[in-house]
Amino acid sequence: MNIQLKYPEEAKMKVFKRPVSNFFPVLKFLALPAVAAAIALSGCNGAANGNSLLNGSSTSSTSTTGSTTTTPAAKLTLLLSSTNVSATSAVNVTARVLDANNILLANKAITVATSSGAIANISNGGVTDASGLVTFSVTAPAGATSGSITVTVTADSIQQTATLNIMGNTAASIKLGAGNGVAELDTTRWEVPYNALVTDASGNPMPNATVQLTITPLNWYQGYFYVPTGATTWAQHVSSRIDCTSGGNCNPATISPSTTLVTDSTGFVTFNVIYAKSFAYWADVSVTATTSLIGGATTDTMQFTLTGQAAVYKDVTVAPPGQCSPFNSTPNQFGTQTIGSTTISTGC
């Protein structure tokens, strides 16, 4: 069966005479999705490349394979917490990786090597974080006292190095300290405890550092102890003060157990200044502690008067040791003084 559709000429004219503008709403409707898609793609220019803003910095994390990126590294910088390193004082290193557009490169694997010493605490398994950073620490070999360590960091074909100076068992600072007590070593001698603390450039205690100690006489005094009328303690009368010169009776004290000591695990050495009881209050001395460091030495000096136990000078019925100064230039000239029912020697 053949079916033939016929359109009257008038109908044809009506169809083709319809204004073209009447079709625009349809065209606009069809075009909107395409335009919107084009705008969306244009707005995703950065995101399409994997770039985003993080903490105010651009971070590149494009073309990742597994947990690392294949975007090549273009720049690498190293930041050091210090340029001095020892076996007990680590240097913290921060590696920063950027791409060719100076954008921080996340998920980039790096390698770290040193010419000696040890590497520890590598962050994120050696892969840069969202800020393009990897941190790690370096320490010197145990027992090393001089030299340097070269740190090498590599990201793709980019390599950066840094040099650390080995401090070893050397120090940056030494400080003397003392207590406030005088101990009786035996019936004829007093001893006073002192210490010295050695620290490195970071303020950490330095074990196994060698400390040299010297004691130097400064002044000695002439005079005597006496009991003022009505007093309950001995008083000191000084007739003259004389600057010491080396040798002779101007060396009233010594250091024990040795003038060369080695710091313990806390960075301290302890020692005693020992002297005859008769020298108490009649001499001034200084103690100097010295330890070595890169390029020289560092010292600390403390000056003080040799003293005795206070209780000895409160018993007015017994003459104190050194009642007459051992540095008097004339023979002792003792007189007597009656205190209550007790007569004692006094004066010189």
Rank of each mutant, 00 (worst) to 15 (best):
Q160I: 06
Q160K: 15
T161S: 10
T161A: 09
T161E: 12
A162Y: 07
A162M: 03
A162L: 02
A162P: 06
T163H: 12
T163K: 15
T163F: 11
L164A: 03
L164G: 01
N165L: 13
N165Q: 15
N165R: 12
N165H: 12
I166N: 02
I166A: 01
M167P: 03
M167Y: 05
M167R: 03
G168C: 08
G168M: 07
N169A: 08
N169V: 03
T170A: 08
T170Q: 10
T170N: 12
T170I: 07
T170H: 07
T170D: 01
A171Q: 05
A171R: 02
A171T: 09
A171G: 08
A172C: 10
A172M: 00
S173Y: 07
S173P: 06
I174Q: 03
I174V: 15
I174S: 06
K175E: 11
K175W: 04
K175L: 14
K175P: 00
L176P: 00
L176H: 08
L176W: 01
A178W: 13
G179R: 05
G179F: 06
G179Q: 11
N180C: 11
N180W: 13
N180Q: 14
G181F: 14
V182Y: 08
V182D: 00
V182Q: 06
A183T: 14
A183Y: 15
A183K: 12
A183R: 12
A183S: 15
E184P: 03
E184I: 10
E184A: 15
L185M: 10
D186E: 09
D186Y: 05
T188M: 02
T188D: 08
R189A: 00
W190D: 04
W190L: 03
W190S: 04
E191M: 13
E191I: 09
E191L: 12
V192C: 07
P193N: 13
Y194I: 10
Y194G: 06
Y194Q: 12
Y194T: 10
N195P: 05
N195G: 13
N195T: 11
A196K: 02
A196W: 01
L197Q: 05
L197N: 08
L197A: 07
L197K: 01
L197R: 02
L197G: 01
V198F: 01
V198I: 10
V198K: 04
V198Q: 00
D200G: 08
D200L: 06
D200V: 05
A201L: 13
A201R: 01
A201C: 10
S202A: 15
S202Y: 00
S202Q: 13
G203R: 07
G203D: 09
G203F: 01
G203M: 08
M206E: 04
P207F: 07
N208M: 07
N208T: 09
N208H: 06
A209V: 05
A209S: 10
T210M: 08
T210N: 08
T210D: 05
V211A: 04
V211P: 04
V211S: 05
Q212W: 07
Q212D: 12
Q212L: 12
L213G: 04
L213I: 08
T214I: 12
T214G: 11
T214W: 05
I215Y: 05
T216P: 03
P217K: 04
P217I: 03
P217L: 02
P217Q: 05
L218I: 15
L218M: 12
L218V: 15
L218W: 00
N219S: 13
W220D: 04
W220E: 04
W220H: 14
W220A: 02
W220G: 02
